[in-house]
Structure formats: C-alpha cells, structure tokens
Design a binder for these strands. Sequence first.
DNA 1: TTTTATCAACCGTCCAGACGGTACAGTCGC
DNA 2: GCGACTGTACCGTCTGGACGGTTGATAAAA
Lengths: 193, 193
Amino acid sequence: MHRTMDAPPPTDARTRILDAVEAIVLARGVGGLTLDAAAKEAGVSKGGLLYHFGSKEALLTGVMERLSTFIAAEFEANVARQPEGPGRVARAFIAWAFGEADCSPGHDHHDRAAAVFLAAFHHDPALLDPMRAQIARMKDLLLNDGIPHGAAMIVMTATDGLFMAHLFGLYRPTEADLRALRGSLDALLEPAP
Amino acid sequence: MHRTMDAPPPTDARTRILDAVEAIVLARGVGGLTLDAAAKEAGVSKGGLLYHFGSKEALLTGVMERLSTFIAAEFEANVARQPEGPGRVARAFIAWAFGEADCSPGHDHHDRAAAVFLAAFHHDPALLDPMRAQIARMKDLLLNDGIPHGAAMIVMTATDGLFMAHLFGLYRPTEADLRALRGSLDALLEPAP
DNA sequence: TTTTATCAACCGTCCAGACGGTACAGTCGC
DNA sequence: GCGACTGTACCGTCTGGACGGTTGATAAAA
C-alpha cells in the first residue's frame, strides 16, 4: 500500500476512493459527497467502497489521516529547506502559505486540504483532531523559533488567514497584494535594526 | 394567538427564526440545522416557518443578509470610534478581531458570524456573496488607509486567521499570544522611525 | 349593528426522494 | 481456495417541501 506513483488509472482502489472524496467536494461541495457518488467517482461499486471503508465516518477519517500525514511531511520538508537560525520555522510557514512546496498538477495541495477540511468538519468537528494535534506541534515550534512572540503570532495568523480567504473564496489577493504581504512578513523576521 | 401569551420573547416570529438558526448551528453543528429543528427552536410550527421563508435557501439567505448588514454597521461604528488619520481602518479591523465592539450577552458576534458562515457555505457557497461584497469594500478601505500595503495585508490576513482559528477550533491562543499579537500589529501601524 | 368577506399569520400532516447502511450471491485473478 | 472486489436488492430514517386547514383581526356590506 505504498505510493506507487504510476500511470493515471492503475492506482489501487483505496487511493482512488480517497482521491474521489477530495474531487467531489471540490467540484460539488460538501453536500455532494455521498457514498454512492464517491464510489462512482472512484470507479468502484458501493459495495467495494464499503469493503475498504466500513462507514462514511471511516471514509472521512481515512481522508483526514492522509491529509494530516501529508501536511506533516510537507512541513518537515519545508523547514529542512530553510537555512538554519532564528526564523527558520516561520520561513517554512510562509513558504507553505505562498505555495512553494510541491508542483502537483491539477489541484494544488491547498485546494485538497480545504476540501478535506470542510468535509470532515461538516460530518463531525472531532474529525479534525489529528489536524489540531499537528497544528499544535507546528505552533509550538513556531513560538520557539527565536523570533519575537508577536512576530510568530503574526506569521501564524496571517498564513491561516490567507488559507481561509482561499478556502471560502472571500477575496482574491492580487499579485501585488501577495508581494507586499510577503515583503512585510519577511521584514518581520529580520533582526531588529 | 398573536401578541398574547409571550412575556419573555416579545420579538416577532421572523427574528426568532433567524436567531434559532444561529443557535442550532452553534449547538448542534451545520448538520443539525433542519427546518423542523429551526421551527421547534423558534417556537413556531414548520408551516409557520415556511410561511416566512419559503425554502431552506430563503432561510439561509435571510440569515446571511442579516449578518452582512450587521457586520457592515459594526464596521462603520468601529471605524468611527478610531481617531482619524492613517491606520484608522486598520485599527478598526484589529478592534473587531479582538472583540472590542459590542457587549451582547450570551453568544458574541464572532460565534454567530461563524455559525451563519458555515451554514450558508454548506448549503451553497454562492450564498456568501453578500459577505464577499462587504469584505471587498472593507478591503478597499483598508488598502487606502495611509499605511504601507504590506502592513494592510498583514492586518487583513491576521484578523482573518484569528477568526478562522476560532471558527474551526484549530488552536486556542493564550492570553499572552493575543497580547503579543496585538502589540506587534499596533507596532506595524506606527510611522516608520 | 350585525353579518359577511378578506387577509395575514400561522398549524399539522403527508409524501416522494435521498441517504447511510446491510445482505448476499456471484466473479475474477493469483 | 481466497481475497478483492462487483451488482443488485433492499431497509429504516430523515428531509425539504407541498398542501389544506384554522384563527383572529379588520374591512365591507346589509
């Protein structure tokens, strides 16, 4: 059950089902996610879906777990990519928010995260617990990153806010908005003059 | 059986229904919001509810419109409360995010906004359009507030992020976190030394 | 003044459809 | 033979919505 990154169709059913959940939520919204729809989208019978995930909750748990571990891995990689020293974690946060991680085609990881997020939360807010744990860890690291407390909090909330604006489509920042935001965030991480 | 027996709730049925929607979403989540539940919570029969709001979508539209106008009014009031000059709008944003607006008992306006937000978005993302228009106006004012572009964007995203963390319960900032955040945001609005 | 008609504001019931989930017999590749 | 499915049929529950009352206030007609 590894990540055999092969041709488009021959992925295993489990992965296809998980992908189908994300695709449906992105295309049709949380309300469009039914077991029947997920099965059809994954090219699997309903019985087959229930063979892998015994209930809708199990399905959402699965999708949530996959997202959590993916986010965790991406975060680690992002941190490793930054130069050592104060502000390293903060820079990883910023890099993630501005989407400099992978280069997956089609839907980027923000969209997929948003879809999973909404679907899980709607079914049962407690399903977000793995993600909460992950966020707590990341917050902990960020607050011990050798930068002022307030700067760390700004990085945390600003990146969250960017994500939320995207999630709900509240507004679309222009390129100039993003450049300015990024510039100011970077400036925050410079040692005081 | 109109204005006779009600001593405690002298509000009209329409308002009670709108309030009931918010209360239900807060207490039982988006999935718990049904017409029956809303009717019962409002002390109205299902037929009566459908008399005022002909469909669930109409109900959510109503709740969304009320929220939009409320937010707009609150924003205006918050701006008026700040001293004139550069950073006035930004300070209003910050004041709102830190909940210094009204003193409504029971549920604060953040909780109610969150409830309406989630319920409307779940039914149909397009229902957020009134709110999007409102946010666009607020963003416009913020970006012409006489402060650097990047600072304005930080204020915008940071306040959104704070709201989102609350909305999904992703993490609970400590008092110290909030103080530090607030201090750094305020410092951003000081004219460069 | 009495009767009748109209109208808004509800009430309570019923229903078709959708959804999550079960059951189970059969199929196909290893 | 066995695990990994497929396909169909079915069940109980819930939901949005339709529909036909009922009630009390008000207005018009007698």
